Amino acid sequence: MSTAANWRKSSYSSFGDGDSCVEVSDRRTHIAIRDSKAPAYGTLTVPADAFTPFIEALKTLTRP
């Protein structure tokens, strides 16, 4: 039996950033990430314990 995931939109998704929204879903053993504008295109999943290091690594790529 499958259940619908509880997707949450990024806190960085605001009125001015509406074109670059992501959603995340905590699925106990892993975290799923998708584009909120095109959810049917698929998801990226990472192990739950790797999610925080994954986000921290992404932040280093976007810093000047």
Results as ranks from 00 to 15, higher is better:
residue 2 S to P: 14
residue 48 A to Y: 11
residue 1 M to H: 09
residue 30 H to K: 12
residue 36 S to Q: 02
residue 1 M to E: 13
residue 40 A to R: 07
residue 29 T to P: 04
residue 18 G to N: 14
residue 5 A to Y: 01
residue 14 S to I: 03
residue 20 S to C: 09
residue 12 Y to S: 09
residue 32 A to K: 00
residue 62 T to F: 01
residue 60 T to N: 11
residue 55 I to T: 14
residue 39 P to I: 08
residue 19 D to C: 04
residue 16 G to E: 12
residue 35 D to W: 00
residue 63 R to V: 13
residue 9 K to R: 13
residue 57 A to G: 14
residue 55 I to Y: 08
residue 19 D to L: 06
residue 58 L to E: 09
residue 38 A to I: 14
residue 24 V to T: 11
residue 8 R to L: 15
residue 53 P to K: 13
residue 36 S to H: 02
residue 39 P to N: 09
residue 23 E to I: 01
residue 27 R to Q: 13
residue 25 S to M: 02
residue 37 K to R: 14
residue 28 R to I: 11
residue 6 N to C: 06
residue 35 D to H: 00
residue 44 L to C: 06
residue 28 R to T: 14
residue 10 S to Y: 05
residue 40 A to M: 05
residue 56 E to M: 08
residue 25 S to R: 09
residue 41 Y to E: 07
residue 11 S to F: 08
residue 61 L to D: 03
residue 31 I to S: 02
residue 11 S to Y: 03
residue 27 R to D: 05
residue 33 I to C: 05
residue 37 K to L: 14
residue 60 T to I: 13
residue 39 P to E: 13
residue 23 E to S: 07
residue 57 A to C: 11
residue 56 E to T: 05
residue 46 V to D: 03
residue 9 K to W: 06
residue 1 M to Y: 05
residue 43 T to A: 06
residue 43 T to W: 02
residue 40 A to Y: 05
residue 32 A to I: 04
residue 61 L to S: 04
residue 39 P to T: 07
residue 5 A to P: 06
residue 52 T to P: 01
residue 6 N to A: 09
residue 32 A to M: 04
residue 30 H to G: 10
residue 23 E to N: 08
residue 4 A to L: 11
residue 13 S to I: 05
residue 7 W to H: 01
residue 49 D to P: 09
residue 31 I to A: 01
residue 18 G to F: 08
residue 59 K to G: 07
residue 53 P to A: 11
residue 43 T to N: 04
residue 12 Y to P: 03
residue 10 S to E: 09
residue 61 L to A: 04
residue 45 T to N: 10
residue 22 V to M: 04
residue 41 Y to Q: 07
residue 22 V to L: 07
residue 48 A to V: 12
residue 35 D to A: 03
residue 2 S to W: 15
residue 30 H to A: 12
residue 41 Y to P: 00
residue 18 G to H: 08
residue 15 F to G: 15
residue 11 S to N: 10
residue 34 R to W: 06
residue 30 H to T: 12
residue 4 A to N: 12
residue 39 P to D: 10
residue 20 S to W: 07
residue 8 R to I: 12
residue 5 A to R: 06
residue 59 K to A: 10
residue 13 S to G: 07
residue 24 V to C: 09
residue 15 F to H: 14
residue 55 I to P: 15
residue 46 V to T: 08
residue 58 L to V: 10
residue 20 S to K: 10
residue 6 N to S: 10
residue 38 A to E: 14
residue 61 L to G: 03
residue 1 M to A: 14
residue 23 E to D: 13
residue 61 L to C: 04
residue 23 E to H: 10
residue 37 K to S: 11
residue 55 I to E: 14
residue 34 R to I: 01
residue 50 A to N: 10
residue 61 L to N: 03
residue 31 I to P: 00
residue 7 W to I: 00
residue 44 L to K: 06
residue 58 L to P: 10
residue 7 W to Y: 03
residue 5 A to E: 06
residue 46 V to Q: 03
residue 39 P to H: 06
residue 19 D to W: 02
residue 12 Y to Q: 09
residue 16 G to R: 01
residue 34 R to N: 02
residue 48 A to L: 09
residue 12 Y to M: 11
